[in-house]
Simulated scan of single mutants.
Amino acid sequence: MIPPTWQECRRPNDDTDDDELVGYLMSAGEQVIPVTLIGTPLGEAQANATAVALLHERGLMTLNGRWWCLLPEVVLGTDTDPLQPQPSWEWRSVFIVEASPQECRVRLEMPAEEERTSTVTLPVPVGELLRARQP
């Protein structure tokens, strides 16, 4: 669950934008840290206006990429519990398919036939459960 102290950041509700939630601002003293919808920092602590501009520009787009998630060799259905990783699990490439203030659902980038409809639900903020994949 997104901490209640994090301030929502939305696109303006005007003719060109739709008031969509694009991330959060986490207080860091006199500055704020821009945070994605899944709770990952999008940058260092910075001025409020700069953080808001960054979230408007890249907040949602950042979620569209590939990510790494520690998962079993085979993921079936929706029963995998990412909070209880096993020693045999490996970092697997995933895509985010849904994000809310409570949870984030991911699916495998290259699923085996039996994994095609499988998803894994992560708590938000995702912390170390999900890592950005470098280009």
Results as ranks from 00 to 15, higher is better:
Gly43Cys: 06
Gly43Asn: 03
Gly43Phe: 07
Glu44Gly: 07
Glu44Arg: 15
Ala45Gly: 11
Ala45Asp: 00
Ala45Arg: 00
Gln46Tyr: 01
Gln46Arg: 13
Ala47Ser: 07
Ala47Ile: 04
Asn48Phe: 05
Ala49Tyr: 05
Thr50His: 00
Thr50Tyr: 01
Ala51His: 10
Val52His: 04
Val52Asn: 06
Val52Lys: 13
Ala53Ile: 02
Leu54Glu: 07
Leu54Cys: 08
Leu55Pro: 11
His56Leu: 14
His56Ile: 07
His56Asn: 09
Arg58Tyr: 10
Gly59Thr: 08
Gly59Leu: 07
Gly59Tyr: 06
Leu60Phe: 01
Met61His: 13
Met61Glu: 15
Met61Gly: 10
Thr62Glu: 12
Thr62Gly: 05
Thr62Asn: 09
Thr62Ile: 08
Thr62Met: 10
Leu63Asp: 01
Asn64Lys: 12
Asn64Phe: 06
Asn64Leu: 11
Gly65Asn: 09
Gly65Cys: 00
Arg66Thr: 12
Trp68Met: 13
Trp68Asp: 11
Trp68His: 14
Trp68Ala: 03
Cys69Ala: 15
Cys69Glu: 05
Leu70Asn: 15
Leu70Thr: 10
Leu70Ala: 08
Leu71Ala: 12
Leu71His: 03
Pro72Gln: 03
Glu73Met: 09
Glu73Leu: 12
Glu73Cys: 01
Glu73Asn: 12
Glu73Thr: 09
Glu73Ile: 02
Glu73Trp: 02
Val74Ile: 14
Val75Thr: 12
Val75Cys: 13
Val75Phe: 09
Leu76Tyr: 06
Leu76Gly: 04
Gly77Pro: 05
Gly77Cys: 00
Gly77His: 02
Asp79Cys: 08
Asp79Pro: 03
Thr80Trp: 00
Thr80Leu: 03
Asp81Ala: 02
Asp81His: 00
Pro82His: 08
Pro82Gln: 07
Leu83Tyr: 00
Leu83Val: 03
Leu83Glu: 13
Leu83Arg: 13
Gln84Ala: 15
Gln84Val: 14
Gln84Gly: 05
Gln84Arg: 15
Pro85Gln: 11
Pro85Ile: 10
Gln86Val: 05
Gln86Lys: 14
Pro87His: 04
Pro87Thr: 01
Pro87Trp: 01
Ser88Gln: 13
Trp89Arg: 08
Trp89Phe: 10
Trp89Glu: 07
Glu90Val: 11
Trp91Arg: 14
Trp91Ile: 08
Trp91Tyr: 14
Arg92Cys: 02
Arg92Trp: 02
Arg92Val: 05
Ser93Thr: 14
Ser93His: 02
Ser93Trp: 02
Val94Ile: 05
Val94Cys: 00
Val94Gly: 03
Phe95Arg: 11
Phe95Glu: 04
Ile96Asn: 05
Val97Leu: 01
Val97Pro: 07
Val97Tyr: 03
Glu98Val: 05
Glu98Ile: 00
Glu98Trp: 09
Glu98Ala: 15
Ala99Cys: 05
Ala99Gln: 07
Ser100Val: 04
Ser100Leu: 01
Ser100Lys: 02
Ser100Asn: 04
Pro101His: 04
Pro101Leu: 04
Pro101Trp: 08
